[in-house]
Simulated scan of single mutants.
Amino acid sequence: MENSRQTPHSGYHWNGSDQRFFEGWYYRVTLPQWGQTFGFMYSIDDPIGNQPHSGGAAQILGANNQYLCRTFPNIRNFWANRNKLELGHWGKTQLSLKPQLLDPVIFEQQIKQGYQATDTLNQGYICDKRNNFYCRWQYKINPIDGWGNRDLPQKATAGWLSYLPIFDPGWQVLMAQGTATGYIDWNGEKYEFIDAPAYSEKNWGRSFPQKWFWINCNSFIEEYDLALTAVGGIRDVFGLTESVGLIGLHYQGKFYEFERGNSKLSWQVEPWGQWEMQGKNQDFIITIIGTTEESGNYVRVPTAEGLQFRCRDTMQGNITLELSQSQGNLIVKATSFLGGLEIGGAPWESVWIN
């Protein structure tokens, strides 16, 4: 990502402390021609080592909501750049050099299990030894929008307070909109693509929120240059908890942000199947509806007790969004059948209304 488009928090956050810590990265590529989406989740827990939860993992939510996971217990084979978006974890290899970013050709030849990812590359290979189910992937990324207006310096997703150790966890959308060109080999089913919609974000801290939902899409039927990220969650603040929400919409280079400092946010989210969210401020109104009849799948997320299945996802959600000026003039209305819909944490025994 060009320096002008690199978001805050793109670098690795661990400061060498032996206190509980995780950092996780999420890359996604959507393939409308196949009606599929692939989400790649990379994480490192307690990188100082010799802790109960020390280690790394790569998870993939793939075609038809299928799931694949590989753990990497050796934290010494994990590496990340503190100044920009670069990271990787090596599994089997005969290389004797320190883990680092490799030429993609050398990586494919020398790293038998593992991944490497930057702002412009996502590459790796993992396999489930129990059934030999595998995924091999390599694609180049062209970043378009980070978090903010396209031609202005990019913003911290959680605002300037995210630079201070106040909120847990931290969260940053790294790339709201981009394109990906390359391939994904999903256990013998090879998807080759050019300029497919791509997305990335990250989290870091002690554990994921107590409870949250997530709505995300940058592959809409009516609009190419449109990307949505919306969340609600209960997070820690100085040991206390608070309920927060955020909606970010990138449309034709302009960024529309709805957060508690400038907007009124409301939502009604079912334990599964229905997500509704609205944001209002003095200039704009946005309404989002997400639905799914898919059962989705569970993925692991960092908790105080290490990686746990506390997150339910589908990448084939139906999303409708409508953005208007406050006086009623419609700016954009769009739909998708390839949206990301998620709930996490506990309990989800009833509708969450805020």
Rank of each mutant, 00 (worst) to 15 (best):
104 P>M: 00
22 F>E: 00
129 K>I: 11
25 W>L: 09
189 E>T: 12
145 D>Y: 15
148 G>R: 07
325 Q>M: 09
329 N>D: 08
133 F>Q: 13
101 L>C: 06
273 G>N: 04
53 H>N: 14
176 A>Q: 11
14 W>S: 11
11 G>T: 02
12 Y>T: 10
86 E>C: 08
321 L>D: 01
49 G>Y: 00
76 R>D: 08
264 K>I: 08
318 N>I: 03
173 V>A: 15
124 G>E: 13
136 R>K: 15
123 Q>V: 10
253 G>D: 07
210 Q>D: 12
100 Q>E: 14
22 F>Q: 05
10 S>T: 10
58 A>T: 13
6 Q>R: 14
282 Q>W: 03
291 T>G: 04
83 N>T: 04
143 P>R: 11
192 E>P: 07
61 L>I: 15
175 M>S: 08
201 E>I: 03
144 I>H: 13
48 I>Q: 08
325 Q>R: 13
311 C>I: 07
307 L>G: 01
209 P>T: 09
279 G>A: 11
281 N>C: 10
346 A>G: 03
179 T>Q: 11
57 A>C: 07
14 W>P: 10
123 Q>L: 14
302 P>V: 06
261 G>A: 09
133 F>H: 07
225 D>E: 06
174 L>N: 14
195 D>M: 00
312 R>W: 11
175 M>H: 06
260 R>A: 13
276 E>I: 10
245 G>F: 05
244 V>T: 10
129 K>Y: 04
114 G>Q: 05
21 F>N: 00
120 T>Q: 14
230 A>N: 06
302 P>I: 04
68 L>S: 06
58 A>R: 06
326 S>A: 15
68 L>G: 00
69 C>E: 15
316 Q>G: 11
79 W>T: 12
57 A>T: 07
103 D>K: 01
246 L>G: 05
11 G>L: 07
180 A>H: 01
17 S>D: 02
126 I>Y: 00
28 R>Q: 09
263 S>Y: 01
4 S>F: 15
304 A>L: 15
174 L>I: 12
1 M>G: 04
1 M>S: 07
110 Q>S: 12
233 G>D: 01
304 A>V: 14
277 M>P: 00
220 F>K: 09
145 D>N: 14
187 N>D: 15
66 Q>E: 15
303 T>E: 05
77 N>T: 13
352 W>S: 05
348 W>T: 07
55 G>P: 12
89 H>R: 04
173 V>P: 12
149 N>Q: 05
76 R>C: 09
219 S>G: 01
82 R>L: 10
260 R>H: 14
280 K>D: 10
348 W>E: 14
90 W>E: 09
75 I>S: 05
12 Y>S: 13
223 E>W: 02
283 D>W: 02
324 S>R: 14
208 F>D: 01
138 Q>K: 10
314 T>D: 14
22 F>A: 03
37 T>M: 06
141 I>P: 09
86 E>H: 07
197 P>N: 04
323 L>H: 02
297 N>F: 03
238 F>H: 13
293 E>M: 06
282 Q>M: 04
322 E>W: 07
44 I>D: 03
323 L>Y: 12
138 Q>R: 08
352 W>N: 03
21 F>Y: 13
51 Q>V: 02
